[in-house]
Every structure is written in C-alpha cells, then in structure tokens.
Design a protein around this nucleic acid. Structure first.
Length: 423
RNA sequence: GGAGAGUUGGCAGAGUGGUCGAUUGCGGCAGUCUUGAAAACUGUUGAGUGUAAUAGCUCCGGGGGUUCGAAUCCCUCACUCUCCGCCA
C-alpha cells in the first residue's frame, strides 16, 4: 500500500510510474487525494472540538472536587451540546478512513526506474542467459511420462486421494524431493539466512499484511470454519513474523528462509501448459525473505538474484533471468526478476523463481519499521524470492538428465539423494 | 469440548470514574565518578497524527455503549493462561 502523504506530494510522479504498469485507473489517484483532503479537514474539526470537550471535562472535575456543583452543572450543559457534533464528526472520520483504505489497496506499487513499460510476458527483458539447452537423446520423454515410467510421481493416485494437481511422490521421487529441500536449506543457511518453520495456515491479518487480501482472495484455499487460509507461499507467514515490529537499524538486513508446502487454487488454469508438474495446487518451496534498509534494498535484491542463480548453476541447469515489465509484475512489487529453466523435452522455459523488492508496499501495511540512529522510525523494505520452487526444478532435472539408462542425478545433489541414477 | 482467570509502555507489574499516556522495578540511552570497566548516583526513554516550531488530537487486546469525563463501569468479539476431558 502506498503512503497517502507520498501520493499527495508526488501526484505527477505517481501517475507517471503507474503508467509503466499500464495501470488504467488514473482518476483513482485524484479521488484518493481529494478524499484525503476531506478526511484531514474532518480530523482537524474533530480535534478542535475534542480539545474543548477535554478542557471542559477537566474543569468540571476540578469544580466537583472543590464542591462547586452549580458551576460544574452549567459547564456540563454547555459541553453536552457539543456531544452530538463530536459523534457525528467521528463517524464521518471513520467512514472517510475506511473509504480511503479501500481506495488505497487498489493502487499497485510504483515500479522502479529500471522497470520497462509493458503489458505482457512478451515484453519482459531478458537480462541474462546461462548455459546451453541440454542435449537429450532420441525418443526423450516429457517429465509426466518419465515419472510414470520410473514410478516416482503418481498423478492418478493424487487425484484419487484429493484431486488434480496433488501428486503423490514415491520412492526415489520422494527422496529426490526431500534431497532438494535439504540442498536448498543448507545453501541458504550457509548464506546467512536463519531457517524458520512457520504455520501453514494463516489468519486474515497476515494475508492483508503481505497483500494477498483483498487482492487474491480467490487464489487461496480458505478454511471458513476457522477463517484461516492455507499459505500460497511461505512469504506470508515469514514476512508477517515482523508485523507491528520496530527493528533496530543495526539489525538490518534480517534474513530468514523457510521450507513450506504452498497451496494455490489456480482457478481458471487448464491446458497443456499445466500438465504434470508444471502447475500444481500443492507444491513445495524454499523461500527467502529479507527485511532491508531502504538504501540497501536494491543491492539486497541483486544479491538474492545472484544467489538463486548459483543454485541453478550447481544443478547444471540452462536458465535465463528476466526483469519483468511493469504490467507483468505482481501488484505489490517494485521490481521483480524471474528465473526460468529450460525444459528440454517440453522445449519451453519454466519459471522456477521470482525475486522481488516490495520497497515499503508491504511494510506500510505490516507496520514494519526500523529505528535509525537519529531516533527516527521509518518503514523498512521487504524482499523475497523462491530458492527454489520444487516441481519445475524436478521436471527440468528429470527431463534434462534423462538418458536411455535412466535419469541421472546432478552431481551436487548426490550426497543428498544417496543415489545417482533413477532407473 | 466443560469450568474459571486474565489481556496495560521492550519486559515485569501498579492503577476499579476526574490533574493517568499512565506509579514503580528491570532493561535501553546519556552523563557524573573511574586509567578503563563494573557498581553507585543523576537525567532520559512508547507509537501515531499534526505544526515552521509549539500546541492540540488519538492509542491501556478489537469493536460498540453509559458519562460532562473511561485504563477503570456495561455489552460484544478475539486471543492468552489455569484446571478437567480427549489426544500426536
């Protein structure tokens, strides 16, 4: 959520930055400014009346103590007349605040200067490509056939237990999954991230804090009896650890990582692109979350990007890095890098990580601040990135490393799997 | 699931209608003393809004009510703890 004062003072800049997203509702900005003006006027009137009422109440208290009941009664009569006005103004004020909040959450974050104007995925900038497409043999199979052939992931069984998009991992498939999780967690820990284990269900306040609500209501599984949501990403619980927190400046950057399953309804997705592991309702992911000083957050973003790439290199995968254009970025993000790995058998790029700087968009909602040496408290910057999302990594490993003899395991993973071939 | 107790500043913990944004202790910060540190002593120490700076205003779990006036009384919701039951 953008800060109202910033919008008031930088109207032109806000409009200009929003245009990078091709954000259409420009009049929303003016509506916000106008509503805020009204809100401030109401606030001022209310404050002035309250000041009078407070003074009167204090005076009455004093008179009563001194036994001057009659004088007190006459002031009482006076101040009673103001009560209705105060009540009316305070109702007006909370209505304006509610409306303002409602409008503010409709504004996405302002893209960083480097983010290119654009609407769709085709307009994303390719900023780096690593490696070459894996050479796979004649008759190579897509992963959904390989997983059946070697009996390592069972989609039908998952459908029986739950439904489409909830696969069952079996034998070496399950162990590969577990190996990757440990591989990712060990590497993150070595990079100075603290590992945390967090709840997989979160409340409304947490969803609001990171921006899933009210925006992405329909994308989350909702347990209505208890009003809890299954996490769509560890970002939600991990970032919310710091909701309503004031950090010390010297504590920054705060680095946490977590492994969790992620649950997404993916309503409306269908077709060949969602086959096999490409898009699931439940999947595993190791997530990085950092809280950074505003002056350092873009260095932190670059660092996270470099780190994610180092994982892909170790796994020997051909990948590319995109800087998303304005229109393709998520609502709360100011800059996002997507990492995509090449899937040799499907002949397409698969997104395996998304690394974003949210600047103060989340921290403003979270009331996540830090106190500087000057004693001033200000909003911190939040960032997160997948490192990494498992299913597509698994898909590309088994497709790219398939041989007529079986699926080889990338060297770096062998000490985690305990085997080097799936056959 | 049943019964009871509670929710106050970084923490502990007073405060049951009026100079209470809140006694006190611990912690933090600054100073005195010291070669330095500790101890002791002194001062200071919540967040937000607002202003040129003051002032003013808001916040004692959330929401609502009573009252001239609410941390304090009433209603309601949420959460926490204790005991019992059940249980990995």
């Amino acid at each position: 959520m953008l800060q109202v004062n910033y919008i008031r003072e930088n109207r032109e800049k806000v409009l200009e930055r929003l245009s990078v997203r091709r954000f259409k509702q420009v009049e929303l900005v003016d509506e916000i400014i106008q509503l805020d003006d009204e809100r401030r006027q109401t606030q001022t009137s209310l404050d002035n009346l309250s000041a009078i009422a407070n003074a009167a109440a204090k005076q009455i208290g004093e008179l009563m103590r001194n036994g001057k009941k009659e004088e007190a009664d006459s002031i009482k009569a006076e101040t009673t007349a103001n009560k209705d006005k105060i009540k009316q103004l305070s109702e007006q004020l909370s209505a304006a605040e509610l409306k303002l909040q409602h409008l503010l959450v409709q504004l996405p974050n302002l893209p960083h200067e480097l983010v290119k104007t654009g609407n769709t995925a085709e307009e994303n900038e390719i900023i780096y490509v690593h490696g070459e497409p894996a050479q796979i043999h004649e008759g190579a199979l897509p992963h959904w056939e390989l997983t059946a052939k070697y009996d390592i992931i069972d989609f039908e069984l998952g459908t029986k237990i739950t439904g489409a998009g909830f696969p069952v991992y079996k034998g070496k498939g399950a162990r590969l999954q577990r190996a990757l999780i440990n591989f990712f967690l060990d590497h993150a820990t070595a990079q100075g991230y603290r590992e945390v284990q967090v709840p997989h269900l979160v409340n409304e306040a947490s969803c609001f804090g990171t921006g899933q609500l009210p925006d992405k209501e329909g994308q989350m599984y909702h347990s209505t009896v208890d009003n809890l949501y299954l996490i769509p990403t560890a970002e939600v619980p991990v970032t919310n650890l710091y909701r309503d927190v004031i950090l010390k400046e010297e504590e920054l950057p705060v680095k946490n990582c977590a492994y969790t399953p992620c649950f997404r309804r993916e309503a409306g997705s269908y077709g060949a692109h969602v086959r096999g592991l490409n898009r699931l309702h439940q999947f595993d992911k190791v997530e990085l979350v950092q809280i950074a000083h505003p002056e350092q957050s873009y260095q932190v973003l670059e660092g996270m990007s470099v780190y994610v790439q180092s994982l892909l290199k170790e796994l020997g995968l051909h990948y590319r890095v995109l800087r998303l254009c304005g229109g393709d970025m998520g609502f709360p993000s100011a800059m996002t890098y997507d990492m995509e790995v090449w899937s040799a058998a499907q002949q397409r790029w698969l997104e395996v990580s998304s690394v974003s700087n949210f600047e103060t968009y989340q921290s403003n909602r979270l009331k996540l601040r830090f106190k500087g040496t000057s004693g001033k408290t200000q909003l911190a910057h939040t960032l997160n990135g997948s490192a990494l999302a498992l299913p597509r990594i698994v898909a590309s490993i088994i497709e790219n490393y398939q041989t007529p003899e079986g699926i080889r395991i990338p060297q770096a993973l062998v000490k985690y799997t305990g085997f080097d071939l799936i056959d």
